[in-house]
Amino acid sequence: MSYQIESRTLTAQATVVIRASIPAAQLPAWLAGTYDQVQRFLTDHGIRAEGPPFARFAVHADAVTVEAGYPVLTPVPGSGRVTPSRLPGGPAAVTIHFGNHDDLGLARQAVADWLKEKNLEAAEPHWEVYYTNPGAQPAPVNWSTEVVTPYRTG
């Protein structure tokens, strides 16, 4: 699969999330339940999501530290497991993956290769923006996921 990587300057974005540290194999089921919980929180508090769901990851030897939720217009207080957060602003390498989520590693590797080729270093955990809800069961070729990796300059 071929990926087009582009450099973008992102604006910091307020978010509402749930955080966890879980085994990677549990991630798909955890994400599905998490998005439902955050969406209920937003609805219950009259807050509108300002974009599609995302998940931000840090991978460790035996687990994945993840925060998942939705961007919002302004910071909002959380409640219980739902907490405020933010996606950082600044330079980022971005690509779109079309297809099954099982193959997202190919997109992440393409971004890592691009950063290495440009002598840049990833700055923070990457995140993925899910433009297609895999729970809707579309044909895998129709899934669209943006992979975002912030990086340091100079």
Rank of each mutant, 00 (worst) to 15 (best):
G90H: 06
R56C: 09
F57H: 11
G90N: 13
S79V: 00
Y70I: 14
V72E: 12
A58N: 04
D103V: 01
R56T: 02
H101Y: 15
G90I: 08
P71C: 13
P91E: 11
L87A: 09
T74H: 14
G78V: 06
F57P: 02
D102Q: 14
F54N: 02
V66M: 11
I96G: 01
R81T: 14
A68Y: 03
A63T: 13
A63G: 03
V72A: 10
T74L: 13
R56D: 05
R81A: 15
Y70W: 15
R81S: 15
G51T: 01
V82R: 01
I96A: 05
V82L: 01
A92E: 12
G80D: 10
F57T: 03
G89S: 10
V64S: 01
T95N: 10
A93W: 01
T83F: 00
A92M: 05
G78T: 08
G78H: 07
A61T: 13
G99H: 12
H101D: 04
P84L: 09
T95F: 09
Y70V: 13
A92N: 06
R81P: 13
T74I: 07
A61W: 07
H101Q: 11
N100I: 02
A93H: 05
G90M: 11
G51W: 01
V82H: 00
A93I: 03
V82F: 00
A58P: 00
G89K: 08
V72K: 11
H97F: 02
F57Y: 15
G80N: 07
F57M: 10
L104C: 01
S79Q: 15
P75Y: 13
F57K: 07
P88W: 04
D62T: 07
L73G: 13
A58M: 03
A55T: 04
S85R: 11
E50A: 15
T74Y: 14
E50Q: 03
R86A: 15
E67C: 08
G78P: 14
V72P: 12
P88S: 04
S85K: 07
S79I: 00
P75Q: 14
G99A: 06
T95R: 07
T65A: 13
P84M: 11
S85I: 08
P75R: 15
H60M: 04
V72L: 14
F54K: 02
G69Y: 05
F54Y: 10
V66P: 11
P84A: 12
V94A: 02
P75E: 14
L104R: 10
D102V: 13
G90F: 05
D103Y: 05
D62C: 01
V64K: 04
V76N: 08
T65P: 00
P53A: 05
V64R: 05
H97M: 03
T65C: 00
D103G: 01
A92Y: 09
H60R: 06
F98T: 10
L87H: 06
